[in-house]
């Protein structure tokens, strides 16, 4: 029997039962799951075993079997790098900015859209705001330059026209994180609403009608009906997001980085790209990747525990 998972009492342990009858009873479910399981085994788990090269001095010629083991050497090198703390600070800084400002943005936007009664307007706005998702970061870099650069930027041209001094935005360390967050919001907020709108679409309109009759105001309806409908999705996305806190979107940061802002712009991803990919140090970059993953696992497991404790939707 399927139970709504948000109910805490659903977590009762099932008594030990013989395995085979259960497997046989659910054979169709296993058939449904099989292609997906195969996918994960073949394209994820088999390649993941290669992560052991993080503990080796890997050489393609010798292969995994023949490459010498070096234990935690790559990790030690990484942690003892004088820039480690700078990289960590920048990575966490950018991620937290994203978590605080970028993560809630599509939720708020979805709520706003849901309140629009005028169907044509709603649809038009919806179709327009999701377009930036399709633009590549290279192009967005170009557009940002076009808007905010000191010599050509529209924004600074406007300031000059108003007899004001031009503002240095793109090579200003103080504005860098904020600019990245703003770019991310601009690009992905509309696209992000899709998943929340899909969740809202599941709400029974009768609930709203009943609430209106009960005299609930607009914000109370939002709080008590719309938001709970999105809760599953919000919690899952939030927990997964925590797992990727060490990722910062390499392309965006790499493109926006310049000499004046490296102090605040160097993150793990850009470092790995330079060191691991361009310099061909596969073992070293794998070790850094492993470090990121382990931090992610700890955060996800922790967040999941916390979510369970507070009776919220959890991942597993």
């Amino acid at each position: 029997m399927r139970k709504r998972s948000s109910k805490p009492e659903a977590k009762l342990r099932e008594p030990k039962r013989p395995l085979w009858p259960d497997l046989k009873r659910d054979r169709y479910l296993y058939v449904l799951a099989l292609p997906g399981i195969l996918f994960f085994v073949i394209f994820k788990y088999i390649p993941i075993t290669n992560l052991v090269i993080g503990f080796q001095d890997y050489s393609p010629y010798l292969g995994i079997a023949g490459s010498p083991w070096v234990g935690f050497e790559h990790f030690t090198r990484f942690f003892s790098n004088p820039d480690f703390w700078m990289l960590l600070r920048n990575t966490l800084g950018i991620s937290l900015m994203n978590l605080v400002f970028f993560f809630p943005a599509p939720i708020i936007l979805a709520l706003m859209l849901n309140e629009v009664r005028h169907q044509l307007m709603k649809r038009t706005v919806q179709s327009l705001i999701y377009i930036p998702h399709f633009l590549s970061w290279v192009l967005i870099y170009g557009l940002t330059y076009l808007m905010f650069s000191q010599s050509e930027g529209l924004f600074n041209k406007l300031l000059t026209a108003l007899d004001k001094d031009t503002v240095d935005i793109l090579s200003n360390p103080k504005l860098f994180w904020g600019m990245l967050t703003a770019q991310s919001i601009w690009k992905e907020v509309g696209w992000g609403t899709i998943i929340f709108l899909a969740a809202i679409a599941g709400v029974d309109p009768q609930q709203y009608e009943a609430a209106v009759i009960d005299g609930a105001g607009r914000f109370r309806r939002m709080w008590h009906i719309t938001l709970p409908a999105m809760r599953n999705v919000i919690m899952i996305l939030l927990i997964l997001r925590l797992g990727t806190i060490m990722d910062t979107g390499f392309e965006q940061v790499y493109l926006m980085m310049n000499a004046a802002v490296t102090e605040v712009a160097e993150v793990f991803d850009t470092y790995v790209y330079r060191v691991g990919i361009r310099q061909g140090e596969f073992s070293y970059s794998t070790a850094i990747g492993l470090f990121k993953s382990i931090v992610g696992v700890i955060l996800v497991v922790g967040a999941n525990r916390a979510a369970k404790r507070f009776g919220q939707e959890s991942l597993y």
């Binding site: 799951a33 399981i37 994960f40 994820k44 788990y45 088999i46 390649p47 993941i48 075993t49 290669n50 992560l51 997964l240 797992g243 990727t244 596969f282 794998t286 990747g289 492993l290 993953s293 992610g296 696992v297 996800v300 991942l315 597993y316």
Partner: peptide, 17 residues
């Protein structure tokens, strides 16, 4: 199964394998 799926989300295999 769920935990295994979650792990694949967090551990990304390299391009080479």
């Amino acid at each position: 199964m769920m935990f295994m799926i979650l792990l694949t989300f967090l551990f990304t295999p390299g391009l080479v394998p």
